[in-house]
Design a protein around this nucleic acid. Structure first.
Lengths: 210, 210
DNA sequence: AACTGTGAAGTTTTTCACAGCC
DNA sequence: GGCTGTGAAAAACTTCACAGTT
């Protein structure tokens, strides 16, 4: 008999779930109780078929003729993405980018708790931003272990990013959001996402007329 | 006779060109003169075949047996992406995110000149960050027209983002990098890219163990 | 020997279109 | 009538593999 293991949902599908969640949160704020793949699709600029197929990887969340119960679907997506808990996060690098991250309200609002920001420059140690004290790199490993931190944001110069990544992975970090414009080399069990506004601007200049 | 129009290069390919450019810039800084699709691929975690195919949409830039002349390829990519000039950019919203953008060195280093940052809050007007004065929204349209600004970064709260987009598009902006966590509705000739660190973290928590 | 450029093959992703249910 | 879930079809994207050039 053939092996009937379902393939895991594609990563590209996982990446869209946060968008669905955002749109659903907005609908809930508008006191709507039910929505459809058509309404969601229109709000997100995505086809309704794609939304239905994406969700079908995880279960039958809708009702034919009716659509999706918004509260219920939010709960399901939060469960799938493991968002029904708080996640401690560390920020590496206390330059302009690192400080902006600590100041950004969106993390706290969505259950990502910044438990520390770290820098190798002694000048920066001790200052407090948004209730978080800048600590020396020497405390990085103990902090990660103490809070069982799995998530980190790297906001160091490019030259320091790989070294930082090596240290925090060794200490237990398993997912990195990097603002440094270099490709990090990490073991396969570690996930990395990049944010590079310059690359996104350069992508769009292609389409601009001179 | 059949119509022999080549299809335009896929958008996903355009999106990788800035990465290639970054890797090439690094190689040039290391005083290397020649590279190969294999070396580039290894540095970027991309297959060599994909790099060759991507580049082949725009011309024959390499030499068989040798590889790619780094300076030459940098020049070609800059030309393709229209980076052999400076681009004026406006920032909408002078909160933490907007201010961090004005402070970020990467834009200036890559030819993106922030010519103004705007806010509707009178309290914020007049302060100067990194040589740029915060101006009231009322000066937005005239500034865009004066500098012929085609690129904008939106760093307002979600609730204000669509309205800001409408205004700047009307004034002439054709590409928007939005930090607001909502999908903007824009006419087809306007390009939009989003940066949402929360969504990227949520994408990765899927893969973490509880 | 080393490496490009590229058709062809393979894989992934999206869209279509409709049976089935409310 | 309105909407989901889903096989099947279509489209998009990536990799293979190799002829051709230096």
């Amino acid at each position: 008999m053939a092996n009937q293991l379902k393939p895991p949902p594609p990563d590209i599908v996982i990446g869209r779930l946060p968008l669905y969640l955002r749109a659903l949160d907005l609908l809930a704020q508008e006191h709507k109780e039910v929505t459809s793949s058509y309404e969601l699709g229109e709000r997100l600029g995505i086809s309704s078929a794609q939304i239905r197929k994406d969700l079908s990887h995880f279960g039958d969340f809708g009702k034919q003729g009716t659509g999706y119960q918004i509260d219920f679907l939010i709960g399901q997506l939060q469960h799938i993405l493991k968002l029904n808990r708080h996640w401690p996060v560390v920020v590496i690098g206390a330059g302009h980018v690192g400080l902006a991250l600590v100041n950004y309200k969106g993390f706290q609002d969505n259950g990502f708790d910044i438990v520390g920001i770290f820098d190798r420059d002694p000048e920066k140690i001790g200052q407090e931003i948004n209730g978080v004290k800048v600590m020396p790199d020497s405390e990085l490993v103990t902090t990660i272990q103490e809070y069982k931190v799995k998530l980190a944001m790297i906001a160091t110069p490019a030259a320091a990013a790989q070294q930082s990544a090596d240290i925090i992975i060794e200490a237990g970090v398993r997912a990195i959001l990097s603002y440094a414009p270099i490709t990090l080399v990490v073991p396969p069990e570690v996930h990395v996402q990049y944010i590079d506004p310059v690359s996104k601007l350069q992508h769009m200049t292609y389409y601009l007329e001179e």
